Amino acid sequence: MDNIYRPRAKRIQGYDLARGVAIFAMVIIDFKTFFCIDETFPEWLYTFIEYMDRRAAVALVMIAGAGMTLMLRKAELTKTRNTLFKRAVFLMLCGILIARIWPADILHFYGFFILIGLTMAQLSGPGLLIGAAVFWLVGFLGLSDSAYGYLESFTAGSLPSRFANLFFTGYYPVFPWAALYLLGMWIGRRNLKNRHVTITLLSSGLLVAVLSECAGYFIPGMAIKTVLAHGASDETAAYIFILLSKLTVIDLTLPSPVSIVSGAGTGLCVIMLSFLCATSLKQRPLQYFLIAGKNTLSLYVLHILFIKGFETLPGIGEDYPILWCTAGAILFITTYTLLMRQWLKKFAMGPLESAMRYFPFVKAPRIMKKDPGTSTG
């Protein structure tokens, strides 16, 4: 097989595959969001893509956390920390620029997650889970009407508004999304080469996802019936129903506490299934996901530029069938991977991955291959 698909010893193929699947889903979701406003046939496809909104990002955040843990296992710990810090700064700068045309940018949040991870990297496994629980719990504060109204009252573009966006009101706010990053760091400490561990985590993720979905569906209605049966007034029952609905609704765009748990469950399933597929299937059917997974930053930025450029063309609307949008996204990703395959024959990594490795553009490491037989990482 072509040597560009043989990973370095440093890379873990399961994470690359999971990252590729997640960015693949994110591109499809974004094509659907910009070019398919109304629900169209087939409804099951539209509903599934709608359900996966933000869940692809959950998987990417968790994988990033796991990747940090793996990097910090290196012997040169100080050098690794400096590398991660520079990577965080690079991603935040890129994100700030992209956010000017793409309000849903994740890179500047992603960079801040790395900084949080660096401050908590010395915690034990249980300590990481406790830290994740704290970020998850503080996220509740942004759900109250008074807190949300206060956070939204800041003048747009002001420093307080930017901080409110970063921590509570943005697309991927630190509270509670940093909890997913810390959970990923905890996963990175697990021995996923052990099939028993992988299957156990897969089962746990599936169970968590199912239970959280059931909680979101049943708890508000059951609570209403219970309080009314015990003589509560209609006003009290309505208040309890609204409160529980906010806490249990499965909607990662809010994000509610239960939806974060649900997202973590599906993210865990994506990662564990990717590990099982990477070890049990031949590599060739998965090579396109692997290429995308090793070069997610370039694909992420390129798909944003493509969508923003394409929607400005004359005659381009927002009412295309979901099948057309999905096919367009698949065609875009296929074209990207074919071009990236040619790029990787000469370079060791994607263009933006190389730029991040160079940052701050001094003492740049080698990004050209020594010879055609050198693998990419």
Rank of each mutant, 00 (worst) to 15 (best):
A237T: 07
A264S: 06
T279K: 15
N295E: 12
M272P: 14
Y300A: 07
L247P: 09
T312V: 08
I240P: 02
T312W: 03
V270Y: 01
G309C: 02
P285D: 09
I250K: 03
Q283N: 11
Y239R: 13
S274E: 05
G309E: 04
S259A: 15
Q287H: 08
A238F: 01
F241S: 15
L254T: 13
L247C: 11
A238L: 11
V261F: 14
G263P: 11
I260K: 00
V258E: 04
L244W: 09
L299P: 00
L243K: 14
V301W: 03
L252F: 03
A264D: 08
F310R: 05
F241R: 13
L276G: 06
I307A: 07
S245N: 15
K294D: 10
Y288V: 07
T248V: 10
I260P: 01
K246I: 06
Y300K: 01
I240F: 06
T266A: 04
S280M: 12
N295V: 08
A264Q: 00
L244N: 03
S262Q: 13
Y288S: 14
S280E: 12
K294F: 06
Q287V: 07
I307C: 06
P285T: 03
A238P: 07
V249Q: 12
S259D: 11
L302W: 08
F241G: 10
F310K: 04
F289D: 05
S280Q: 10
G265M: 01
L244A: 09
Y239E: 13
C277T: 06
L273F: 14
I271T: 04
L299I: 11
K282N: 14
Y239Q: 13
A237Q: 07
K282P: 05
I291W: 05
L268S: 02
L276S: 05
I240R: 07
I250W: 01
I307G: 07
T279C: 04
L281N: 10
G267I: 02
A278G: 15
S259H: 03
R284C: 03
S274A: 15
K308N: 13
G293V: 06
R284D: 12
T248H: 08
S256T: 14
I271S: 02
A278I: 04
I304A: 00
L247G: 08
I304D: 13
L252E: 05
A237G: 08
L247A: 10
G267Y: 01
F306L: 09
V261T: 09
T312D: 08
F289A: 13
L297Q: 09
C269Q: 05
F241K: 12
D251I: 05
L254I: 12
A278M: 08
L290F: 03
S259Q: 08
P257W: 07
L302Q: 06
F289P: 05
S256M: 01
L252K: 01
G267D: 05
L290K: 04
D251W: 00
H303T: 09
T253A: 15
Q283G: 05
K246Q: 12
C277Y: 11
Y288D: 11
T253Y: 09
T266K: 10
V249A: 14
Q283P: 06
Q283W: 00
H303D: 01
S245L: 06
D251Y: 04
M272W: 13
K246G: 12
I242N: 14
I250E: 06
C269G: 02
F310G: 09
K282C: 04
K246H: 10
G263S: 10
S256V: 04
L281V: 11
Q287C: 08
V249R: 12
Y300W: 11
